[in-house]
Design a protein around this nucleic acid. Structure first.
Lengths: 206, 206
DNA sequence: ACCTGAACACCGTTCAAGT
DNA sequence: ACCTGAACACCGTTCAAGT
């Protein structure tokens, strides 16, 4: 019996394969357009097979969202390691790499913050991934605080504001509300720099 | 023939009734849980009737999102009228009322920015509503610029940053990522004030 | 432990036909 | 102009049965 690559799914990592296969479908057809049955036949398994790995469609979406949070966390820790002496740069790099990621993975970002699944009722995998992302970003802000950058403001407030800005900007990009910038990749970076500057120094001209 | 209120839908505003009926269903069961058929029977019409008013499910969702953008625009213009001499207060009031709206209408906000429909391919109704909201917010920022508040920075950058912050904060609230604050209504307002302060003066302690 | 395939109750969407 | 009701192709989900 020739064991083709397709046959391998029968005892391969179907769970992971489903997550990977879901992402391009989400991008092209959206959440309602995603069909577990279609995914299953695409991967060469029966339409019942996915239910051995996810209780329902929503749980698969959670798993996709979790990958996004892990990316965000990874960007934060990488920025921390790459610029250990410069917490301000850490924040900028983490934010910029995340925005770049979102610009090519809108569908994941939409699942992370799009409210399709509320983190309140989410499963432990998603909850943990989200917590770790917040944790990693908080660490960067803490670095800045200990370097005396941010005064005595509350860390949580600083995290909320900076993540709000980064996430908000990424959402504008992914929602297509920034008519002009989308095409050139440099334009996105330039916009990030300008927004970062405003975030750092405030709207007010003091 | 007794013309009950239900019978009136036969020549009433079914389009508007569908939008109104969709909102609580979206809140409770989400986008995939929303069924045009269910909505139709709930309103006492056949399951084919909605298709006289919306080409498909997605178009109904767009209409719901448009109501949110109109709200945002309305908050901006109201804030402008309520505090004609204080553009800084205008920005705060518009942001705060919007956040309060989102805290009780997460489902609408998720449709506005959740990426379910990209504004690129959206219908004219949604596009126009979104444009008007941006317009109204831009006007507030322009007021501030003319009052000399924001220096010579680009208006678009200021708008993007402030709306990113407001929208990002509202998304945290709606996504349930702010574990502590959700319960007390005053806590949300207090958080808004603190974030607003950071937005105005910047993260840096200069 | 993981997968199959039939079965069930639902959908979105279309379209001729009614008023 | 607006609505009905049948029809079609499709889902998500369950579950006995297979390996």
């Amino acid at each position: 019996m020739a064991e083709t690559a397709k046959k391998a799914y029968h005892h391969g990592d179907l769970r992971h394969a489903l997550i990977e296969a879901a992402i391009p479908v989400l991008r092209e057809k959206g959440i309602v357009g995603l069909s577990l049955r279609e995914l299953a036949t695409e991967l060469g398994v029966s339409h019942g097979a996915p239910y051995r790995h996810f209780h329902n469609k929503s749980e698969l979406l959670e798993a996709v969202a979790a990958t996004g949070f892990r990316k965000l966390a990874a960007y934060c820790t990488r920025a921390t390691h790459d610029f250990p002496q410069d917490p301000q740069r850490q924040l900028y790099e983490a934010g910029w790499t995340y925005i770049r990621y979102v610009s090519t993975h809108k569908e994941v970002a939409n699942l992370m913050f799009g409210g399709v699944m509320s983190l309140d009722h989410a499963g432990p995998e998603l909850k943990q991934a989200a917590d770790q992302a917040i944790e990693a970003l908080s660490a960067i802000v803490e670095n800045g605080k200990q370097a005396g950058l941010y005064g005595n403001r509350d860390t949580a407030d600083l995290v909320v504001t900076s993540l709000s800005t980064v996430h908000g900007l990424s959402m504008f990009v992914s929602a297509g509300m920034l008519c002009s910038e989308l095409s050139e990749p440099d334009a996105l970076k330039a916009l990030s720099v300008r927004v970062y500057d405003i975030l750092m120094h405030g709207l007010l001209d003091q």
